[in-house]
Design a protein around this nucleic acid. Structure first.
Lengths: 230, 230
DNA sequence: CAAGCTGAAAGTGTCGACAATCGACGCCTA
DNA sequence: TAGGCGTCGATTGTCGACACTTTCAGCTTG
């Protein structure tokens, strides 16, 4: 039942729940850019590399397809999703929609613990900005937004945010350095948190809009510069 | 540049993709109540019934799991998702968030064609209300909201709406008769469309809020009355 | 009579195999 | 030399098989 052939290289996966593990590994490879957009994900190759059979790989691929990380082309296989500038724009449109709501809700039911978590995350970002570690900053940025969604107290909203964010990571992981001035991130996040703490819905929406608007323009522009062909 | 042979080769050959077909059948069975919430979906049984092997069934089940229609329990199989009143509430929260945005965007870029489509859909609902066909009314209701999301011109938003709606269908299909007064549906939709045509964001949001708020309370109440036991 | 144990049946997780299909390469034809 | 056609290898879609788990009915026991 276990793979008998001695596969070289990668550690053989533990049994059961292979699907989730494969999905995690593939996701990781995609958001970290080891699998570039458009790259083919051959089931046989993945299976060989992990020392398992193709069945779990196929199921994991379906999972990632439904999350928008892979694209299935019948009879041809799975490919890492390619995001056009317009699709990135659409994604940010939804993020705006979702995060406005999340921030307002988070303000309505802000617990001291959630507030502290957000403050700590902001401090962390300021710290990372000083050290100039682009990857860590992007991660911390993501976590800050995620904490807001978490504080909104709607589990499904959080899942939705994760889905949008993971799709965006396809391109963001590629970009590497998202902002020219790392310190800018902390500065644009701060008013968002302040507005949440103050609890003024209009100010919250305004600041979220501004912050995401800046990020959106940046990412869209970078995506366009990456793929300038029609 | 090469000249592609047939400029319009519309009929893509029937994808021999069993997975999609199985997914469609299972989805159908769930939203039409033939598979009740909590029911076990045994792959072997489904495969036997359809005369195919288990592999495509498993993949289809994963697909539906990611859509929230099924729930996977490791080593035990797949079960039709059970929605608590709170989860339904959360779903409506997201619908509110998404449909507000969709309606405002739809108003911003309303084409005559989209406007006509919405008007026709409203007429259809009025018609169905007179005939008192609950299932058809629910379907027409769904289509009206979907048209608004379509008019918003964001493909991903539409997919998101479809996801939320299909989850809600688990319970709505169960309820059967959603409103006591069928004519009420048309009446609560009308101001939404009018606000969209008028193009006043605040009025749009207000009417969407009101309409969905009514529906939400109704569905949540019915779900609670259906499953008040632990 | 209820509770716990036992064993078999059913079902899942995974595997290797096989036919159908796709893409690429090279050959033939103008 | 450019373009179309057939063949070959590689990959996908699907299948049946097997070991391990879970479930459940029937039996034993307190």
């Amino acid at each position: 039942m276990r793979a008998m052939s001695p596969p070289v290289g990668l550690p053989v996966l533990a049994e059961s729940d292979l699907v989730r593990q494969v999905a995690r590994r593939l996701t990781d490879a995609i958001v970290h850019g080891r699998l570039a957009p458009g790259a083919k994900v051959a089931e046989a190759a993945v299976a060989r590399e992990l020392g398992i059979s193709r069945a779990p790989v196929r199921e994991a691929a379906r999972l990632l397809e439904s999350q928008g990380l892979l694209k299935a082309s019948p009879r041809r296989g799975f490919f890492v999703r390619e995001l056009s500038a317009q699709e990135v724009d659409e994604l940010y449109d939804l993020r705006l929609c979702v995060e406005r709501h999340a921030a307002v809700e988070a303000a309505r039911r802000l617990t001291p613990a959630a507030r502290d978590g957000l403050r700590r995350q902001l401090d962390l970002m300021r710290d990372l900005a000083r050290r100039d570690d682009p990857a860590a900053i992007v991660e911390a940025d993501y976590q800050f937004h995620r904490l807001i969604c978490e504080a909104a107290g709607n589990g499904r909203l959080l899942r939705l945010f994760d889905g949008l964010a993971s799709e965006l990571r396809i391109v963001i992981g590629l970009i590497g350095r998202l902002y020219d001035d790392p310190g800018e991130i902390a500065r644009t996040h701060e008013p968002v948190l302040e507005a949440i703490e103050a609890g003024h819905p209009e100010r919250i929406v305004a600041h979220v809009d501004h912050h995401l608007g800046v990020a959106r323009r940046e990412v869209v522009r970078l995506v366009q510069s990456l793929a300038p062909n029609p």
